[in-house]
Computed example of a mutant assay.
Amino acid sequence: MPPAPLPQSEETDLMQRVARLEAVEAIKALKHRYLRACDAKDPKAFRECFVAAGAAVDYGALGSFDADGMAAVFEKIALQKVDGKNVILDMHHGTHPDITVLDAERASGKWTLKFRQVNLIENTETVMTGEYDDEYVVEDGGWKIAACRFEQYWSITRPVDETCRIAQ
């Protein structure tokens, strides 16, 4: 004997809860694509994480840009090479996602960033942490970043000397 159908209000509530969970998972996947694009030095994939026009990107000391401007800064910094090898090596880990789905097309999120960078031009290693405060919208059927603000909590920069072995 099949189970009795849910009353309309319970079915609607269940559908809304499932849609919210799907939105949260899609937004997590979006942020992970963004972080992977940063580490993979992929400006095209980086740019595709943002809305087509009007994104607000504020990375504190690095500056405020639209998505195209930030992609250009990303290319200038991250894609530097000397003797065919990358000289800026980054590692971005986004943790502790706190995502609020506002409606079917808008959401906000906070993420903690754990960041590490080896700079072979200045021979330094920087470790940093801070908080992303994002706004998301649905565009062309998928979630995109409409605004991304980053506030640094702390960082430490130390020298990398000739005894350090770096493989890439």
Rank of each mutant, 00 (worst) to 15 (best):
M1A: 00
A4E: 00
P7E: 14
P7I: 03
Q16E: 14
A19E: 14
L21G: 03
V24D: 05
I27Q: 00
K28E: 14
A29W: 08
Y34V: 05
D39M: 08
A40V: 05
K41A: 06
K44T: 14
K44F: 07
F46E: 05
R47H: 07
A52P: 01
A53E: 15
A56E: 12
V57A: 03
Y59A: 03
L62M: 13
D66W: 04
D66L: 12
D66K: 13
D68C: 07
A71G: 06
V73F: 13
V73K: 15
F74V: 12
E75A: 14
D83P: 00
G84W: 05
K85W: 00
V87A: 03
G94F: 05
G94H: 07
T95M: 14
H96T: 13
L102A: 08
D103Y: 09
F115G: 00
Q117V: 04
N119R: 11
I121T: 00
E122F: 00
T126Y: 02
T129C: 02
Y132A: 08
V138T: 12
V138L: 11
V138Q: 12
V138H: 08
V138D: 10
E139N: 12
K144Q: 11
R149L: 05
R149C: 07
Q152K: 15
W154G: 01
P159E: 06
A167W: 10
Q168P: 04
